[in-house]
Amino acid sequence: MAVVAMKPYVGVPRDVVANFNGMQLVYASWDHHLLFASSLMMCLPPQMKFREFVEGPLTVLLQPDPDAGKIEWNKVQWLKSDQAFTPDFEASLKDNGIVHKALLRFKTPGLNSLLKQGA
């Protein structure tokens, strides 16, 4: 049973994409870069190109990290919902299959200024 109840019971999800005025949520997380305490939440238009997303809101949010300037975006390894993912930088978020509340993780091997050696 999907909930312990006395009779059939159906819940209403609170964060469906229809509530966001044409926008959607995207989460991004930079692996092994914990200056950012949690994944970064952004509210973006699904038509936004992946390149605009990376060079715009994502780059702005990453600034405080000492490694931010050293990211080579063409070498970054991406994960979408834990699966390896090769984004098309010229296509939109939507056409890249980035749905509402999707989590994008990215790895930059070799960059980890704020981790002590041996970590």
Binding site: Y27, A28, S29, L35, F36, A37, S38, S39, L40, M41, M42, L61, P64, L103
Partner: peptide
């Protein structure tokens, strides 16, 4: 430039 994280949390 105190650190403020405007990427609000998941």
């Amino acid at each position: 430039t105190p650190f403020k994280n405007f990427g609000v949390a998941k």
